[in-house]
Design a protein around this nucleic acid. Sequence first.
DNA 1: CTTGACCTTACTATCATTAGAAGGTTTATA
DNA 2: TATAAACCTTCTAATGATAGTAAGGTCAAG
Lengths: 146, 146
Amino acid sequence: MNIGEAAKASGVSAKMIRYYESVGLIPTAGRTLSGYRVYTTTEVQMLRFIRRSRDLGFAVEKIEELLALWRDRTRHSADVKRLALEQVDGLERKVHEMQAMIDTLRHLADACCGDHRPDCPILADLEAGHSGPTAQRRPTGLVHQS
Amino acid sequence: MNIGEAAKASGVSAKMIRYYESVGLIPTAGRTLSGYRVYTTTEVQMLRFIRRSRDLGFAVEKIEELLALWRDRTRHSADVKRLALEQVDGLERKVHEMQAMIDTLRHLADACCGDHRPDCPILADLEAGHSGPTAQRRPTGLVHQS
DNA sequence: CTTGACCTTACTATCATTAGAAGGTTTATA
DNA sequence: TATAAACCTTCTAATGATAGTAAGGTCAAG
């Protein structure tokens, strides 16, 4: 199986497979004589594991831990559960932050008549910069990307 | 007012002020004879506007539009409202995605006894990669950062 | 033997932000 | 006045996951 076939079979792009190899998330793949990477079904399974973990929002760093537990037949399921719940915590923190933004924006938009006139409480709020009732005092680094 | 004072007054770091200038979000600042940037209260107000917009999750690109409307005394408040509601839409899409992840993870974690034994439905799910009841078929590019 | 579809590496970009280095300026104090 | 601290300047690089591009090698079918 070459990288393209492995990509199709796992749902991870060839680019990302090479990237995961480069950062040590997956072991260096075998090579044909001509230098093509070769993948076994076991490695494709690992890639699917990674893909699914990404779909659940796990960072590559955490996936590393998940993979280690996956391979460890003497693991404690408590450790897996802890990682999952930590992930839930992180996601919920982000959700709450965004929900606060949504609430503020909705509130401001409700107050804006949204017609041809220039007067606008949304701009007034941004201008005032009072950071309103739902704001974070300091960036938490969690949501500042769009 | 030099850049440090403007940073304190606006809540935008000096680094970011220079960055915003470099990408054209704010006009190039005036300079002293020795090359220090100089800021007026108007410019500090603009920085506070930017800061507040970032706190509400707006991308720099959108802030550019907001600033243009802010400066335009013949604006239609409808345009501002539209931007705000688009932002709400984007945030809600992300929130729903994350909520789906949370639901899946919670469901899996509930099924995991979390003790010293290795058996774990969370790992089983990741391994199977069936993308479960709450999954997105394709990455939307909205949540894949931690 | 050519064509097209694949593979290789390496570099670039994204987005907002932070950090560092190396060097010049201003301000306050000894 | 000398000096040190605290500022400022520009430039570079890193973050995290992913996509794009370019230049070149390989493989399979026609």
